[in-house]
Amino acid sequence: MVIKFTINGDEMEVDVKPNETLLDVLRNKLFVTGPKEGCGNGECGACTVIYNGKPMNSCLILAPEADGAEIFTVEGLTKDGKLHPIQEAFIEENAFQCGFCTPGFLMSAKALLERNPNPSKEEIVEALSGNLCRCTGYDTIIKAVKKAAEKMGARS
């Protein structure tokens, strides 16, 4: 079946099967490979995209359901070749190592800062507890999200 949606603002039309997930379609049909498959069970958050404004595990969304959806992925973060403040903060705070979980963390962090521009440590933890990272030990990720909030506050 043919579905239509937007990815990072670009309209797309794609033929999907019911047994494909949104993650399958993004990665293997549209080659939007920022979202990663880390478990396929909604347990690791590496496939997190912002779906109609909310962070969700794209591995748990059946592709046909995405008809009409607005989807935002890590590929949409940079504007005019410039890094988003969240990306800058992740680099400055060394908030990643292998990088495989990073696209998912960036999506969860962006969605958090959009609904809550000045989150507490507890709120950051709650928003990011669905994103697993085996490299960093997470403390720099918390710092990076705080720093991003400061940067975004300063810019708006």
């Binding site: 293997n28 990663k36 990088g99 960036l106």
Partner: peptide, 20 residues
């Protein structure tokens, strides 16, 4: 900062699974 930082925060860093 890491030399692979830009690739890793923009989703352009490629892993085997990203190859077609």
């Amino acid at each position: 900062p890491r030399v692979d930082a830009f690739e890793k925060v923009t989703g352009t860093a490629k892993y085997v699974t990203d190859m077609f």
